[in-house]
């Protein structure tokens, strides 16, 4: 696995994460995010069960540090993994197992954290973190900018294959959730997918939620609006 970033938007309270790896369909394994609760992002030799278990601990009110320590106690393969736990407050606790391949490491920032292994160098992590902090705009765009910066530096020493981005706003209603499972340039492609499709539901996210809850089609309302406008 390669590198990932998790973050909480200070303005909206949304939780989001982006990951890339030379591993097909990485987005299927990590991250696990729950609105208003937090994020579990596991990489290295991924243990996908850590996600739901960790979210349960966070829901029970445990902090990121507590959750990380408990997850590590229950995971015999902890040294093979990298694990970020971000709690309700946006505080992160990160563990980089000693059996991950170099270059490996993590950075904990204000309401975000970055982790990576099998990197061309640790500069990848610094680039991801700095770009995220420097970039303005919606959380998903800051995450994508950060991932692109890491990709530019070199990313995964083995190459590239998959990437994913997920931002959660309201539980049960995916906000941003795009994956590239197998591509020569997964992050570039992920960025393109986002840009080409954000107008579909992301720009009308809450209208869509209301429509779903009301039991009507969002298109009907759009059509009706157009009709009304003549």
């Amino acid at each position: 696995m390669t590198y990932s970033i998790v973050a909480k938007c200070k303005e909206t309270g949304y939780f989001g994460a982006a990951v890339t790896s030379c591993f097909p369909g990485i987005g299927a394994y990590s991250p696990t995010i729950k609105a208003n609760i937090g994020i579990i992002a596991s990489q290295g030799w991924v243990n996908p069960t850590l996600g739901p278990i960790g979210i349960k601990y966070l829901e029970a009110g445990k902090t990121a540090n507590e959750t990380l320590n408990t997850l590590l106690m229950k995971d015999p393969g902890r040294e093979l993994r990298q694990l970020i736990v971000m709690d309700h407050f946006g505080n992160s606790a990160v563990y980089t197992g000693v059996e991950n391949d170099d270059a490996k490491g993590h950075i904990i920032g204000d309401q975000f954290a970055v982790q990576g292994n099998i990197l061309t160098s640790l500069d990848v992590l610094y680039a991801v973190a700095e770009t995220f902090e420097r970039t303005n705009g919606p959380l998903q765009e800051r995450l994508l900018a950060a991932m692109l910066a890491g990709d530019k530096i070199g990313g995964d020493a083995r190459g590239k294959q998959a990437a994913a981005i997920k931002v959660v706003a309201e539980e049960g209603f995916p906000y941003v959730d795009f994956r590239v499972d197998d591509s020569a340039e997964p992050i570039q492609e992920l960025n393109a997918i986002y840009k080409n499709n954000k107008h579909v539901l992301i720009d009308e996210y809450y209208e869509w939620i209301d429509a779903v809850r009301a039991g009507v089609k969002l298109q009907d309302r759009q059509a009706a609006m157009k009709k009304e406008r003549g």
Binding site: Y206, E207, D210, A214, G215, V216
Partner: peptide, 25 residues
């Protein structure tokens, strides 16, 4: 008023069927 969509959404109704009025925005 739903501030995120700038729509008026029916929060409660009396003499109206919820299944239908919840669709009104």
């Amino acid at each position: 008023n739903n501030e995120r969509t700038s729509k008026l959404v029916i929060e409660s109704g009396s003499g109206f069927d919820h299944e239908y009025y919840q669709r009104i925005q």
